[in-house]
Write a protein that binds this DNA or RNA. Structure first.
Lengths: 364, 364
DNA sequence: TTGAAAGCGTTACCAG
DNA sequence: CTGGTAACGCTTTCAA
C-alpha cells in the first residue's frame, strides 16, 4: 500500500494553474495575474488563490513562462577556471546578487581555451540566457563582438578588448602594476624584475603599470628583467619557478620581483629559496590577487588585492540593471581600485615570520 | 545606415523551425525529426535541413522543448561554499561530465546554512531541474527526504544521512580517519589528538576511524585529546588555532594531531609554531582534503587525499545514468578510497624542507 | 474586476 | 518516409 502511494505521488504530474483555477472556480488568467501581482484583482479572489497556491506548494512552470515572455531568468557565467579562488569568489558573490532577484546562474569553464570557450558560449546562447557574463579566454574580440551585436546583454569581467565597446567590470590593472612596483622601489629594490602574464588586458595593463612606475622613479627599464609573455594563464606556479630561475641566472640578479599573479609568485619564491637566497632580504617578492592562503605560505606573500568580491557584486548589479531596463542601454564600465597588502615577502626591516605582521597583513 | 542595420538585427526574432520548414518546403515535424536524428527521414531531406540549420545558425528553443518533453536539461548543484577548493573542484569536474551530454549545471551555495539551503532547493525545484546534486548543510534528512520521494532524482555527495536511502557519492570517511591516525602512530606518536569536524557524516566517520585506529593499535583513547564537535564547517582555520591552543595547554601535551580538514590543520600549525614548538618533531600534524596549496605552506602539510575530482566525475556519471534510465532505478552508493599523502608536517626522519620531498609528496 | 481566445516553439501520435 | 493535429503551461490582448 505504501508502495502504491509512493508510486502515485511519483507519477502525479505537477500542479498547474489550471488545477488551481478549477478548484477555485476562477479562470486561469486570474490565477496568473495574482501570481504576478497584477493590480486588477479583487482582494477576496487574491487571498483565495494565494491560499490554494500555498496549500499545493505550486510553483509556476518557468519553461512555459519563458516560451511566452522570451525571458529565461537564467544568467550564464563563463570563467577560465573555477578552481582559481579569484573566479570562484566572483561566481559566489555574483550568484548571491542574482538569486535575490530570482535569477539562476549557470557556470561554465573554458579552461583558458578559446575554442572551448566559444563552444560553451554557443551552448549557453542556445539556452536563450537573459545575460552572459564572461571572463574571456579569447585573445581577440571576434566571438564576443558577434554576441554583443546580436545576442543577450554581455558583461565582461576581468579581461577586455580595446576594440570592443562592451559592459565591463574589472580592476585598474595599470594601478596594480604601479602599486606593486612602487612598493618594491620604496623598500629599496633597485633591479626589479617582472614575471609577465599573458597578452590579455590584465597582463598588458600590469606590465604598463610596472613600466610607468620605473619611469616615474627614473629607474632604467631593462628588457632582460621582463619575462616573455605567456600564451595563457595556466600552470602559473610552474611557470613562476621556471621564469624565476632564468632571472636568477642573470648577473647582477634582480633584488625584487613583481609577479603577474600569486601562483606565479609562489613559484618564484620556491625558485629563490631553492637557490639558497633569502626573501625578502636578497629578493623581495610581490604578487597580485591576494589569495586567501597568501598568509599561510612558506613566506607570507605580499600582494595586490583585486577587490574580487566587489567585482562579482558590481557585475551582478550591472547585469540586473541591464535586465530591468527597457531598450538598449549604453555600455558601462566599472574600474575598481586595487589595494596593496604588505606581508613578509616584502618586509625588509623586520626579520622573522608571523609575529611581525603589520596591520595591513592581517587582511585576508 | 549602420545603426539601422544593427537595430534590425537586434529586433529580429530568433529563427524557428517554422522558418526552416517554410524555406525548404517541408513540414516542421520533418525539421524536428532531423534535429533529433530520427531514423525515418530521407537522406536528401536530411541534408537540406542540416544545411539550412547551419546557414541560419539555428538552435532549438529549449523552453519550448522542455514544455513538451518535461525535461529541462538543467542539473542543479548545491554546495556549502564554492570558495572551498573541495567543492570548487567537484563543481568543475561535474560540469565537465554533464556538459558533454548537453546538460547545464546551475550552482547555488548554502553558506553552510540549512535554512538558506532549503530556500535554494525550493528555488531550484521551481525550475523543474532534471536532477539535484547536493552536499547538504542540513543536520537531518527531512528536507531531502521530501525531495527524494516527490522530486527529481537526488544525488548526495560528501555528506549523507543514516536514515535516508539516497544516491550517494563520497569518500570512505572511516578510512580517512584510520589512515591519518595510523600514519601518526607509525611515525611514533603516542598521544594523538583529534580536532573534530561537525556532527555530519564526514565528521563522525573520521572520528570513528580515529578511534578504530587507536583501538587496533591498543592505544588508550583519551577524551581530553578529542575536541568538542563544531556546529558547522565554517571558519575552520580560526577554529583550528583555538582548539589547538587548548590542546597545547594539556600536560602532557599531544605529540601528534589529526585534523578534520586542511584549513583546521593550518590553524593548528599556527598555534603550534606560535607556541615555539617544532613541526613535526614536537608535534606532527596531518589534515584531510589534500588542497592544492598544501605543498606551499609554512610547513608543507601531510593530508589525506579525498579523490575530489573523482567524486565529481562519479556523481556526474551517476546523474547521467539516472537521467537516461527509464523508470525509477534503485539508489546507488559509491564510496571512494582515500589516499595518504606524506609531506613535511609528518616527516620525522628527515629534517629541513623542500628538498626532502618523498615521492608521495609530489602529488598535488 | 474577470475571463475567453490566441498564441509562444516544440514534440508526440497517428494517418497517409 | 512525411506531415497534420493536438497538446505542453503559461501570458497577452481585448472584450465583457
Amino acid at each position: 500500500m505504501i508502495v502504491g502511494a509512493v508510486l502515485y505521488i511519483d507519477a502525479m504530474p505537477p500542479t498547474t494553474m489550471k488545477d488551481i483555477a478549477r478548484d477555485l472556480g476562477v479562470s486561469v488568467v486570474t490565477v496568473s495575474k495574482v501570481l504576478r501581482n497584477h493590480e486588477d484583482i479583487g482582494d477576496e479572489t487574491r487571498k483565495r488563490v494565494l491560499a490554494r497556491v500555498k496549500e499545493l506548494k505550486y510553483t509556476p512552470n518557468l519553461a512555459a513562462r519563458s516560451l511566452v515572455t522570451g525571458r529565461t531568468y537564467l544568467v550564464g557565467l563563463v570563467v577560465p577556471d573555477l578552481l582559481h579562488p579569484f573566479f570562484a569568489q566572483i561566481a559566489k558573490s555574483l550568484s548571491a546578487v542574482l538569486r535575490k532577484k530570482g535569477y539562476c546562474l549557470t557556470i561554465s569553464t573554458s579552461e583558458e581555451d578559446p575554442k572551448l570557450e566559444e563552444q560553451e558560449i554557443d551552448r549557453l546562447l542556445g539556452r536563450r540566457l537573459d545575460a552572459l557574463i564572461i571572463a574571456t579566454a579569447s585573445t581577440n574580440s571576434s566571438v564576443l563582438g558577434r554576441i554583443s551585436t546580436a545576442g543577450p546583454p554581455l558583461i565582461l569581467i576581468d579581461r577586455r578588448f580595446a576594440d570592443l565597446d562592451a559592459n565591463y567590470v574589472g580592476i585598474d590593472d595599470e594601478a596594480v602594476g604601479a602599486l606593486a612596483t612602487e612598493h618594491l622601489i620604496e623598500i629599496g629594490c633597485r633591479r626589479i624584475a617582472h614575471l609577465r602574464g599573458p597578452d590579455i588586458s590584465p597582463g598588458l595593463g600590469r606590465l604598463k603599470g610596472y613600466l610607468n612606475a620605473l619611469a616615474k622613479h627614473k629607474m632604467e627599464q631593462r628588457p632582460e628583467l621582463i619575462s616573455k609573455p605567456r600564451t595563457a594563464d595556466v600552470n602559473s606556479r610552474e611557470t613562476g619557478v621556471e621564469l624565476m630561475r632564468q632571472m636568477l641566472a642573470l648577473s647582477p640578479r634582480p633584488d625584487g620581483v613583481f609577479c603577474y599573479n600569486d601562483p606565479m609568485a609562489i613559484g618564484a619564491m620556491h625558485a629563490i629559496l631553492d637557490a639558497g637566497l633569502r626573501i625578502p632580504n636578497d629578493i623581495a617578492v610581490i604578487g597580485s590577487g591576494n589569495l586567501h592562503y597568501d598568509t599561510e605560505l612558506i613566506v607570507p606573500l605580499s600582494s595586490i588585492d583585486q577587490q574580487t568580491e566587489q567585482i562579482g557584486e558590481r557585475a551582478g548589479r550591472l547585469t540586473l540593471s541591464l535586465l530591468e531596463s527597457k531598450g538598449q542601454p549604453k555600455n558601462r564600465t566599472f574600474i575598481l581600485e586595487p589595494q596593496l597588502v604588505v606581508r613578509a615577502s616584502t618586509e625588509r626591516k623586520i626579520a622573522g615570520r608571523g609575529s611581525s605582521a603589520s596591520p595591513a597583513s592581517r587582511r585576508r
